[in-house]
Simulated scan of single mutants.
Amino acid sequence: MSTSHSAPQDEQYPYPSTAEGKPSTALPPYPGSVQRPGGRAEGERFKNQSLLFGVLALFVAGLVLAPFAIYYARKAEELEVPATAGKVLGWVTVVIYAIYAALFQTLIYFLILASLTGYGDGAI
């Protein structure tokens, strides 16, 4: 009981040939694989990590966690999975901490200036 093929199989390439006589470039599916590595599932994981780090950055250690939110959002978008929420939360936290740093620096500047000039030493 032999099967007949339109073109004979080559020993070097054991898969059947196409009608044009060229070998087929399609590989057989890998058993048990639903998705290739680095696909949509990994992008979704990066998106979820970005959102988690973005939310945590608003309430906990924002200066440390905000760059992680931006990084994971960028990795998710490289895999064509939109991660806008995590990226926006990360950048908002970075801007908030930049404003805090500027205000703190200004406060320190005025306190040093006040102590050097003797402001506030007057009697009431």
Rank of each mutant, 00 (worst) to 15 (best):
M1P: 04
S2P: 06
S2T: 11
S2I: 14
S4F: 02
H5E: 12
S6K: 08
A7H: 12
P8C: 09
P8L: 13
P8F: 03
Q9E: 01
Q9M: 12
Q9L: 08
D10A: 05
D10Q: 10
E11I: 02
P14G: 01
P16N: 02
P16T: 00
S17P: 00
T18A: 07
T18S: 03
A19N: 06
A19E: 11
E20I: 05
G21R: 04
G21K: 05
K22D: 04
P23D: 01
A26Y: 04
A26E: 14
A26H: 07
L27W: 01
L27Y: 00
P28E: 06
P29A: 15
Y30A: 13
Y30F: 13
G32T: 07
V34P: 00
V34Q: 04
Q35G: 07
Q35N: 07
R36D: 12
R36K: 10
P37Q: 11
P37R: 15
G38I: 14
G39S: 13
G39K: 05
R40I: 15
R40F: 11
E42R: 12
E44D: 07
E44C: 06
F46W: 11
N48V: 12
N48C: 10
N48L: 15
S50T: 13
L51F: 06
L51Y: 04
L52T: 14
F53H: 05
F53C: 06
L56P: 01
L56G: 07
A57I: 08
A57P: 02
L58W: 06
F59A: 08
F59Y: 15
V60D: 10
A61T: 14
G62V: 01
L63W: 09
L63N: 08
L65C: 05
L65I: 07
P67H: 09
F68Q: 09
F68V: 11
F68E: 03
F68D: 03
F68A: 09
I70Q: 05
I70S: 04
Y71R: 13
Y72F: 14
A73K: 02
R74F: 15
R74S: 15
R74K: 12
K75T: 08
K75H: 09
K75A: 14
A76K: 08
A76S: 13
E78T: 09
E78W: 04
L79F: 04
E80Q: 15
E80G: 09
A83E: 01
G86N: 12
G86S: 07
V88W: 00
L89P: 00
L89D: 00
V94C: 08
V94K: 08
V95Y: 06
I96W: 05
Y97W: 10
Y97Q: 00
A98N: 02
A98E: 05
I99G: 04
A101M: 14
A101H: 08
L103E: 07
L103Q: 02
F104V: 05
Q105R: 04
T106Q: 03
L107P: 00
L107W: 11
I108R: 07
Y109F: 14
F110M: 02
F110Q: 02
L111M: 12
L113K: 15
A114L: 13
S115C: 10
L116D: 11
T117H: 11
T117C: 11
Y119F: 15
Y119L: 14
Y119T: 11
G120Q: 05
D121S: 12
D121H: 04
G122D: 13
G122F: 13
G122W: 13
A123C: 09
A123F: 08
A123Y: 07
I124A: 08
